[in-house]
Design a binder for these strands. Structure first.
Lengths: 135, 135
DNA sequence: TCATTGTTTTAGAATTATTCTAAATCTAAT
DNA sequence: ATTAGATTTAGAATAATTCTAAAACAATGA
């Protein structure tokens, strides 16, 4: 998923118009499975030597979320992570270190529609297990 | 849990010094099981005719969280709810209406310490099931 | 009771993540 | 190459939350 051809296909497959900035952002974001903030991604793209505005990073992340390319993980009011891995999985969050770690196994409870409030459909299950360093 | 004596005992049991503002805030917050934002609670307290500053509402909610009286629920970067019910439970969040609804049953997966990252201990399991209105 | 001391509250300023704005630039299609 | 619509941009605006430092309060004990 690292080279140009794959990135272009990835965006195209998700009906995202190709632009220079979107390719740059996707290149950096999908270089590996990772959890990044918008700010971190903005810095990472700048460090490649490319020029991109912060607004574009926010716009593009929002677009990628809507198109199902990345997943938002809300940790607290000042920490939103973007997860380059959209497969069904959950997270450990270490409140002492700030680390966000994937939980590989499918440990989420299995919900069926009858469990949901009447008139609603499932959007996504967000499970965050907060841990602290044991002293 | 609604009257003065109970509120005082509740705070005292959690090693919280009694002050006029803390009682006012607790009175309003624990009047019933509810999910409120800091802003909503601030308005609700003001509507009782009492004078409290917004900073105190934030300070007091932070204190109550640390002392285990209320639970924070992070929905997104601009929505933090305070849950007056600290019993083990989880939430549905309706992305269309903004409603946060308790899940009564214990549907969270059962985690044991061996599942956690090495050197960490469980803090809390936060499970939010996002739903949308089915059209 | 009143003086002392540490705690709490306050208004408003500061901070910070995110969104908005409107002009400039780019892209795709003629 | 021209046009029209989409995208990007810098910087301003917004909004939730935290900070600051001064004033008010609560608890203690002489």
């Amino acid at each position: 998923m690292v080279d140009r051809v794959h990135i272009d296909k990835l965006l195209d497959d998700h009906n995202i118009n190709l632009t220079r900035q979107r390719r740059l952002i996707a290149d950096t974001l999908f270089a590996r499975h990772q959890h990044v903030t918008a700010e971190q991604l903005f810095e990472a793209v700048k460090n490649t030597g490319a020029r991109v505005s912060k607004a574009t990073v926010y716009n593009t992340l929002g677009l990628f979320v809507r198109k199902g390319l990345v997943r938002e993980v809300f940790i607290d009011s000042s920490r939103t992570f973007y997860d380059s891995n959209t497969s069904h999985h959950h997270h450990f969050y270490n409140v002492d270190t700030g680390d966000l770690i994937d939980i590989k196994e499918r440990l989420a409870p299995h919900f069926v529609d009858s469990d949901l409030p009447a008139g609603t459909a499932m959007e996504i299950v967000d499970l965050v297990i907060r841990v602290r360093n044991s002293s």
